[in-house]
């Protein structure tokens, strides 16, 4: 004999699942990069409207392929950002690392600065004194600006997004 109470419990669980997916549809996302930019158009060659930093939150307004048009809560700024710059997890910064509060709870949290971080790298270096990070630091300073990229593309008879791909 299958008790009615348990059928109700099972139905309730399924309802909870649907409720959660509805809440997730209204998207607030976080920047998962050291820094990123919002652009006027959905392209890496688009003019930059704002700079964003790790853990900052944005509201998704519109989607176009791999690009999302977002706004920054509390600020009158909108722009396009590539989806790989964003995570649906709430990024909680360690105290003193940023403006984002640490009041968020739950499992969908990426703890910025936790885990394999500067501190762990320093400890690892201490254990492996033969390793030299000079060139790693050096190569990380080699950055290409959108203008240089645009010149390189035009100058080489190339096309950005020739196949309607991600750019």
């Amino acid at each position: 004999m299958f008790h009615r109470r348990y059928i109700i419990i099972c139905l309730a669980l399924i309802c909870v699942l649907f409720l959660i997916s509805t809440v997730e549809a209204q998207k607030i996302m976080s920047i998962q990069l050291k820094e990123s930019q919002l652009r006027v158009t959905p392209s890496f060659l688009g003019k930059i409207t704002a700079k964003l930093f790790y853990g900052e939150r944005v509201t998704v307004l519109q989607e176009k392929g791999a690009w999302k048009k977002v706004s920054i809560p509390g600020k009158n700024v909108q722009g396009w950002i590539h989806e790989t710059a964003l995570t649906s997890k709430s990024i909680v910064l360690k105290a003193g690392r940023g403006t984002v509060g640490t009041s968020v709870t739950g499992k969908e949290i990426a703890l910025a600065g936790k885990g394999f971080n500067e501190e762990v790298e320093a400890q690892y270096k201490k254990n492996n004194k033969n390793l030299d990070y000079t060139w790693i630091n050096q190569m990380e300073t080699m950055k290409v600006s959108p203008e240089q990229m645009e010149d390189f593309i035009a100058g080489g008879n190339l096309v950005f997004g020739a196949e309607g791909g991600n750019p």
Partner: peptide, 19 residues
């Protein structure tokens, strides 16, 4: 870097934490 970073922008993973 000019060539590589331009190519990376055309990949499905154009953005990385440190680029």
């Amino acid at each position: 870097n000019l060539l590589g970073q331009t190519l990376a922008m055309a990949s499905d993973m154009p953005e990385l934490f440190g680029g």
